[in-house]
Simulated assay, not measured.
Amino acid sequence: MQRQGSIGGSAVIRVRVTGGVLLVAHLALVAWLMLRPLDVPWVMPANLRPFATVRADLALGGAEAVRRIGEGLGLLAPLGVLLPLAHGRLCVSPLASLVRTVAAGALISLGIALLQTGVPGRVVDVDTLLLNTLGVAVTHLAAVPAARAGLRRRAGRRDVPAVRQEDPAQGRTPTIPRVGIAPWSDVLPPSSP
């Protein structure tokens, strides 16, 4: 029997294992980059005002602004592809997949931000959380729907959800017609005179 919406057979295992390994490797790299102590003479205070750091970066102008904002967008952007890859399903709602992936990316970014509070030289910045989440969403929208459609065509499914296959040895499941409620006279013991 095939799970509804899955790739099928050993392919689903290969996709999930590959996605899981790449996901763990990427998260390990992100943890190494973002949770290392920094040796700095002073640290700016935490930024809890949305878009304050983005405005400051844009005020720098030019390549420096693009680099800083690009770093925020690109840090967790691969999660937009790796999380659905680790999930390993082809026939899912695009909106549900996007919401699930973006929520997971936001939670991972929040977890990193909370862990940074205990690392010397690192401060919490709400703009990093927003840019990381936006990067996950953009990457997911740019790659996942097209990749799933291509894989469905390749598998011969053409955007139709997978149907449960019957085991030929068992045959069809019998259907039972609806039965109404028995009258109380059939349930009550016979009355004695």
Rank of each mutant, 00 (worst) to 15 (best):
W32K: 13
L48G: 00
L38M: 13
Q2T: 14
G135M: 09
L38P: 01
Q165D: 14
G171P: 05
V160C: 04
L90Y: 05
L79V: 05
H26K: 02
S109E: 02
P174Q: 10
P161L: 13
P161N: 08
R49K: 10
A86G: 15
A137T: 05
P190G: 12
A63E: 13
V163H: 12
L33E: 13
S185T: 13
R152C: 12
S93P: 03
A149C: 01
P174A: 10
A155D: 05
W32S: 11
L23E: 03
G121P: 05
S109P: 01
L129T: 04
M44P: 11
A162C: 04
A106E: 04
R55G: 11
R14N: 01
S191D: 14
V123A: 14
V66E: 07
P193E: 12
P190K: 13
V92M: 10
A86K: 01
A143V: 15
V138P: 00
I181D: 11
V102H: 03
T53L: 07
P183H: 15
A146C: 01
I7V: 14
L79C: 04
P78M: 09
N132W: 06
R36Q: 13
M44D: 15
H87D: 10
H140R: 03
T133I: 06
R153S: 11
V54Y: 06
R55Q: 14
V92H: 06
A31T: 12
T173R: 15
L151N: 02
L76R: 05
L130H: 05
L131N: 06
E64L: 14
G156R: 10
A146E: 03
Q116M: 08
R153L: 14
S97K: 01
W42S: 15
L141M: 13
L33Q: 14
G8N: 01
V179P: 00
L85G: 08
A63Q: 13
T18R: 03
L95Y: 07
D186Y: 08
P120L: 04
A162M: 11
R164Q: 14
P84C: 05
V144Y: 05
L75S: 12
R14P: 00
I181Y: 05
Q2W: 11
T128C: 08
P177N: 04
D57C: 07
P41D: 10
T18P: 00
P50Y: 12
P50N: 11
G5V: 09
E71T: 13
M44I: 11
V21T: 12
G61E: 08
R122K: 09
G9M: 07
Q165F: 05
R36P: 00
P193Y: 09
A142P: 02
N132H: 12
E71H: 13
G135R: 08
L129A: 04
R158A: 11
P45T: 09
L85Y: 02
R16A: 00
V119Y: 08
I176S: 01
A182F: 05
H26Q: 12
A96N: 10
L130W: 10
M34T: 15
L107H: 02
G8R: 01
L83W: 09
I112N: 05
A96G: 14
P168F: 02
T133Q: 10
V126K: 06
R16M: 11
G88D: 07
D39K: 08
R154L: 15
